Computed example of a mutant assay.
Amino acid sequence: MTRDNIQIGMGHRSLNTRIDVYLSEVGFGLNPAQLRRARLRQIITLECASDAELASLGIRRDDILPFVFRDLLAA
C-alpha cells in the first residue's frame, strides 16, 4: 500500500487544512480524507497554475476547491 507523505503549505494554512475546512463548511458528512486523496493531484495542479491559466478555465484561485468538488457539492 502506498502512503502519501507530502507536506504542502500554501499561505498560512496547509492545503490539507484548507480542503478539510472547505468540506466541513459546506456540511459534507463523509470522511474528507478519501476525497482529498482522490482529488489531491487535480488540486495541486490547479494551485500550481498561474492566475492567467486559472482565468482561462473560468475560475479564480479561491474557486479551486469548489471547482474540484463541483460534481459532489453545490457551493
Rank of each mutant, 00 (worst) to 15 (best):
residue 31 N to T: 08
residue 43 I to N: 00
residue 22 Y to W: 03
residue 27 G to H: 12
residue 52 A to R: 02
residue 24 S to K: 14
residue 24 S to D: 11
residue 43 I to A: 06
residue 25 E to I: 07
residue 49 A to W: 04
residue 46 L to P: 03
residue 10 M to E: 08
residue 37 R to S: 13
residue 22 Y to T: 09
residue 41 R to S: 12
residue 62 D to R: 14
residue 72 L to S: 09
residue 1 M to R: 02
residue 6 I to F: 05
residue 9 G to V: 12
residue 2 T to L: 02
residue 5 N to R: 10
residue 37 R to T: 14
residue 35 L to Y: 15
residue 66 P to C: 02
residue 46 L to G: 03
residue 57 L to V: 03
residue 44 I to V: 15
residue 3 R to W: 00
residue 74 A to F: 07
residue 2 T to R: 09
residue 40 L to R: 12
residue 35 L to W: 14
residue 32 P to D: 07
residue 21 V to N: 08
residue 28 F to C: 06
residue 31 N to Q: 11
residue 14 S to D: 11
residue 48 C to K: 15
residue 30 L to H: 10
residue 36 R to M: 06
residue 6 I to E: 03
residue 17 T to R: 08
residue 36 R to N: 08
residue 60 R to D: 11
residue 44 I to H: 06
residue 45 T to V: 06
residue 62 D to G: 08
residue 60 R to Q: 12
residue 75 A to T: 14
residue 73 L to S: 09
residue 75 A to M: 13
residue 45 T to K: 12
residue 12 H to T: 11
residue 47 E to K: 09
residue 30 L to R: 15
residue 23 L to H: 07
residue 11 G to R: 01
residue 8 I to N: 04
residue 20 D to Y: 15
residue 61 R to L: 11
residue 38 A to Q: 14
residue 19 I to Q: 00
residue 4 D to I: 04
residue 31 N to Y: 07
residue 25 E to G: 08
residue 71 D to M: 06
residue 38 A to P: 04
residue 15 L to E: 01
residue 33 A to E: 09
residue 28 F to K: 08
residue 41 R to A: 15
residue 13 R to P: 00
residue 40 L to N: 05
residue 2 T to V: 02
residue 48 C to I: 11
residue 15 L to K: 01
residue 73 L to N: 14
residue 73 L to F: 13
residue 51 D to A: 01
residue 2 T to K: 12
residue 3 R to P: 00
residue 12 H to Y: 03
residue 67 F to D: 06
residue 21 V to S: 11
residue 19 I to A: 00
residue 8 I to F: 12
residue 23 L to N: 04
residue 15 L to I: 10
residue 17 T to L: 01
residue 1 M to N: 01
residue 4 D to T: 04
residue 71 D to Y: 07
residue 13 R to E: 10
residue 70 R to T: 11
residue 17 T to Y: 03
residue 64 I to P: 00
residue 22 Y to D: 08
residue 73 L to V: 15
residue 11 G to L: 04
residue 4 D to Q: 05
residue 56 S to M: 05
residue 49 A to V: 04
residue 42 Q to Y: 04
residue 60 R to F: 04
residue 48 C to D: 13
residue 18 R to P: 02
residue 68 V to E: 07
residue 48 C to T: 15
residue 57 L to K: 01
residue 29 G to C: 05
residue 62 D to S: 14
residue 17 T to V: 04
residue 54 L to P: 02
residue 8 I to P: 01
residue 11 G to A: 05
residue 72 L to W: 13
residue 58 G to Q: 08
residue 44 I to C: 03
residue 48 C to M: 15
residue 35 L to Q: 14
residue 62 D to M: 10
residue 53 E to A: 01
residue 46 L to C: 05
residue 57 L to E: 04
residue 28 F to I: 05
residue 12 H to K: 12
residue 16 N to A: 10
residue 38 A to I: 09
residue 18 R to M: 13
residue 75 A to C: 11
residue 64 I to G: 00
residue 8 I to Y: 10
residue 48 C to E: 15
residue 10 M to F: 13
residue 26 V to E: 01
residue 38 A to G: 05
residue 27 G to F: 13
residue 25 E to C: 09
residue 38 A to Y: 06
residue 62 D to C: 11
residue 35 L to S: 10
residue 74 A to S: 13
residue 52 A to V: 07
residue 73 L to P: 09
residue 39 R to Y: 12
residue 46 L to T: 03
residue 11 G to W: 03
residue 51 D to R: 09
residue 34 Q to D: 10
residue 60 R to K: 13
residue 52 A to G: 00
residue 36 R to C: 03
residue 23 L to A: 06
residue 27 G to I: 12
residue 69 F to H: 14
residue 37 R to Y: 10
residue 34 Q to C: 05
residue 69 F to R: 09
residue 15 L to N: 00
